[in-house]
Design a protein around this nucleic acid. Structure first.
Length: 805
DNA sequence: AGCTAAAATGTTTTT
DNA sequence: CATTTTAGCT
């Protein structure tokens, strides 16, 4: 055989072997997996198997390097051929093992960095890599994975001292930032009536997203009064963060970029180490993050970014959609691969999504398709008000579960804003349908949790005046706001942290002896905690803090029983979190525990296995999928939100959000809107969302709610507004916490009468009817009832409120 | 200092 | 409407 023929056969056979090994992927996906060198942009539509590609590509890279495209043919190629032909029939794992002989330039796992959008995604990558390489393999642990924030924190802890950061720095959340800024504004005598704190916050945050420091900001402000003020606040704010060894979310990225720009050796070090850089959800990166990826990948230019311009929904947070649109302008010879085959949704859902997003301009242009089934039409339902809407959703869920068409965890309720969850939540609680809420108030944002965490932060970093201020008088120690202010200005004058200043506070007469004593004993207490922190575990430390600060006692003295129990339960949950952290971490420390708390999002804790309906915002749902998706509140002014309605660019962002929402659904999409809705105590009526109008009628199944409950209510005069009798006052407790947010069971509610088939019953809205069947379901009973005038319905006993007649 | 009651105010989305 | 901030009182 001539040599060139052997080469050709060898290469073809090698590629055939790899294609066989990756036969579960489609052609485009495989192309992406094999493309490991040079800049690569993967445009991955919703549900196109993006994570699968990412994981397989990482695994391929680490195991085989550039084997598929390697042009080199071994000298013994001819001898290898028969054996290779045989290898085609090997089973999957054995084939994977066999293929390692073709590996070329396979990089060690620790030279690979994979940046994801959520910690959950990072964890998923690690898990799937582990399952490919086998239990006990080290590759997954060696790959540098995490969010931009978590990776940057790791870099800053290691090298931050070179730009003046102590490695014990703590991270401020949004709340802390707000407090700090309003403190700065007070110090500068800027009235927050004219310049709201929130405005300043977003201005500073966006400046940092664009890598604009205080000096440059002041220059850009020129003579503009408002911007000059913001510039002054920015400068003061930044110096305060610096002296307290604090970083806000945006600093984490900006300071890392600064580190890499200013310190040549660190930059060279990292550039040499990370030969391969992958970035997920690239459409949601901001300028600072773009710069960071450019810096990291500058040496080898082996950068892969995955994203979908149609799913760019974080502009308000500084995301720049142009980052993905113009990716190829940053690198020469960028390869672009589009993944357009959808493995998630039915044809109907996908077509609806395509139609909606087609109304946007400035897209890279992609059309998703699927070989899957046509599926049901999209249900559009108009209800009278948000209570009916909630009831409709609850009813639909229990019907489908009752008919064994689905289990609770198959359902997701996705909304535009967190406040929409309330009415649905209450209805679900009453109906005894298990549910979980993601987002809204984060667990770690609860007051009592933040208080205890503030103690921990102070123990970790004694120069954290912000946290000190928070807890100096919680529980009450007789140290009032005025004394703190005096102490703070004196401490500022001396240039020492507040805590250190308080140690010697008795030298000053400006603070009363009683207060000074209280301050000194507070300092001693913190000293003891700091000593204890060296030997004790985080869990033990938390326990100690709760006891010895008197915080536990303070909670136990709360007058309201519910509140007392809830807060106590939240602290128990905090201890649980600490315990879990310690169990799941190789070398747990207070420092990394605090970091975990600061950088963990609610979605990160979303647990697919618990059987409960899940509620979350559409933003949080990105990357997830559910068999049945409800989209309540699909009304103009809600979604699209009223503040975007005048601005075509922002409407496009809302439309992308609608696209994300629709593409979360695998089987069924159920859209609801209402005739009138209560917002801030005012009722308002909104037309059906324009985005639903953009879906062709052939894909929709529109039902106007025939049960006109509003008419019914009008005919029945409302009972006079009597003072509520205690036992009828509804317990509208907030969810216990987001970590273990399984709704209370129906058994909490008043026991309903039970009925048997054949009984005559009366329902509040449907009137009289005959029970056809009764099916026990968990703690509840599902009745099928033939109503005399309303037809046959399936209802849950606990919330149907049936009366025997 | 610390409590209570009245007034103000806010509604997008989040690492 | 619901929560947070502030003013006034003890």
């Amino acid at each position: 055989m001539p040599e060139n023929q052997i080469s050709a056969r060898f290469s073809a056979c090698k590629r055939k072997l790899f294609d066989t090994y990756f036969s579960k992927l489609n052609d485009k996906q495989r192309e992406a997996v094999y493309q490991v060198n040079g800049p690569l942009l993967i445009l991955a539509g919703a549900g196109s198997g993006k994570t699968t590609v990412l994981v397989n590509r990482l695994a391929y890279l680490i195991r085989y390097g550039n084997a598929y495209h390697d042009p080199v043919v071994p000298a013994n190629a001819a001898a290898l051929l028969p054996e290779m032909e045989q290898a085609l029939s090997l089973e999957h794992d054995a084939l994977g093992e066999y293929l390692t002989r073709f590996a070329v330039d396979a990089p060690p796992a620790w030279t690979v960095m994979a940046i994801t959008f959520t910690n959950k995604a990072a964890r998923e990558i690690k898990e799937r890599i582990t399952s490919i390489f086998g239990e006990g393999s080290t590759e997954a642990a060696e790959i540098m994975t995490g969010t931009f924030h978590s990776i940057c924190v790791r870099i800053l802890r290691q090298y931050g001292s070179q730009i003046g950061f102590d490695r014990n720095f703590t991270i401020c959340d949004t709340d802390d930032v707000k407090k700090q800024i309003s403190l700065c504004m007070k110090q500068l005598n800027i009235d927050d009536k004219n310049l709201p704190v929130k405005t300043v916050m977003t201005a500073i945050s966006h400046a940092k997203d664009k890598l604009i420091g205080p000096t440059e900001y002041a220059m850009q402000a020129g003579q503009d009064f408002k911007y000059k003020q913001i510039a002054a606040i920015y400068e003061l704010y930044q110096s305060k963060l610096r002296s307290q060894n604090l970083l806000d979310f945006d600093d984490i990225i900006m300071q890392t970029v600064r580190l890499l720009t200013e310190c040549e050796d660190v930059r060279a070090n990292l550039q040499r180490r990370y030969r391969y850089v992958c970035v997920d959800e690239y459409q949601d990166t901001n300028y600072a993050q773009l710069t960071l990826t450019l810096l990291l990948s500058a040496r080898y230019k082996n950068i892969m970014v995955v994203g979908d311009d149609d799913q760019s929904i974080y502009k308000f947070r500084g995301a720049v959609i142009e980052n993905i649109l113009n990716f190829d302008q940053n690198y020469d010879n960028t390869a672009v691969i589009k993944l357009e085959e959808n493995y998630r949704s039915t044809k109907t859902i996908l077509n609806a999504a395509n139609e909606v997003i087609a109304h946007n301009s400035g897209r890279l242009g992609k059309t998703l398709w699927t070989g899957g089934a046509e599926g049901d039409k999209i249900q559009i339902r108009c209800l009278n008000n948000q209570n009916d809407e909630a009831r409709f959703i609850a009813e639909t869920v229990s019907q489908k579960v009752g008919r064994n068409e689905a289990v609770f965890k198959d359902f997701a309720v996705l909304y535009r804003m967190n406040s929409q969850s309330r009415s649905i939540e209450q209805t679900f609680a009453k109906a005894g349908i298990p549910y979980r809420i993601l987002g809204g108030q984060r667990f770690f944002d609860r007051m009592e949790v933040k208080d205890i965490v503030a103690y921990l932060a102070l123990i970790n970093n004694p120069s954290d005046d912000l946290r000190l201020r928070r807890i100096i008088n919680t529980p009450r120690r007789g140290i009032g706001d005025k004394s703190v202010q005096v102490a703070e200005s004196l401490a500022n004058a001396e240039g020492c942290p507040l805590l250190e200043f308080m140690r010697g506070v008795k030298r000053y007469n400006a603070i009363s002896a009683a207060t000074a004593n209280a301050m000194v004993s507070f300092v001693y207490m913190i000293d003891q905690f700091r000593e204890a922190a060296v030997t004790k575990s985080v869990t033990e430390l938390i326990e100690m803090v709760i006891e010895e600060t008197g915080y536990g006692k303070m909670l136990s003295e709360l007058p309201d029983l519910n509140e007392r129990e809830e807060r106590r339960a939240n602290l128990d949950e905090l201890m649980n979190a600490a315990r879990q952290y310690e169990e799941g971490n190789e070398d747990p420390s207070l420092l990394t525990f605090l970091e975990d708390i600061a950088l963990v999002a609610d979605v990160d804790k979303y647990d697919e296995t618990a059987d409960a309906v899940v509620f979350m915002t559409i933003h949080s749902s990105k990357g997830l999928e559910f068999p049945v998706v409800f989209l309540p509140g699909m009304e103009d002014n809600i979604f699209p939100s009223f503040q975007t309605i005048m601005n075509p660019e922002e409407i496009e962002e809302e439309r992308r959000l609608a696209y994300v929402a629709i593409t979360r659904a695998k089987r069924n999409l159920i859209v609801t809107h209402v005739r009138e809705r209560m917002i801030n105590g005012r009722t308002s009526s909104n037309p059906l969302s324009r985005f639903i109008g953009e879906i062709p009628d052939t894909l929709k199944d529109v039902t106007e709610d025939p049960q006109n409950a509003a008419d019914l209510r009008q005919r029945m005069p409302r009972p006079p507004k009597a003072k509520p009798v205690n036992q009828f006052v509804e317990q509208t407790k907030k969810p216990m916490n987001t970590m273990a947010n399984i709704a209370k069971k129906a058994s909490d509610a008043a026991p309903a009468d039970t009925f048997a088939s054949g009984d005559r019953v009366k329902h509040m809205t449907f009137g009289e009817g005959t029970v056809l069947a009764a099916k026990p379901m968990g703690a509840d009973i599902l009745y099928e009832i033939a109503f005399d005038s309303a037809g046959t319905k399936k209802l849950m006993a606990t919330y149907a409120k049936l009366k025997k007649i």
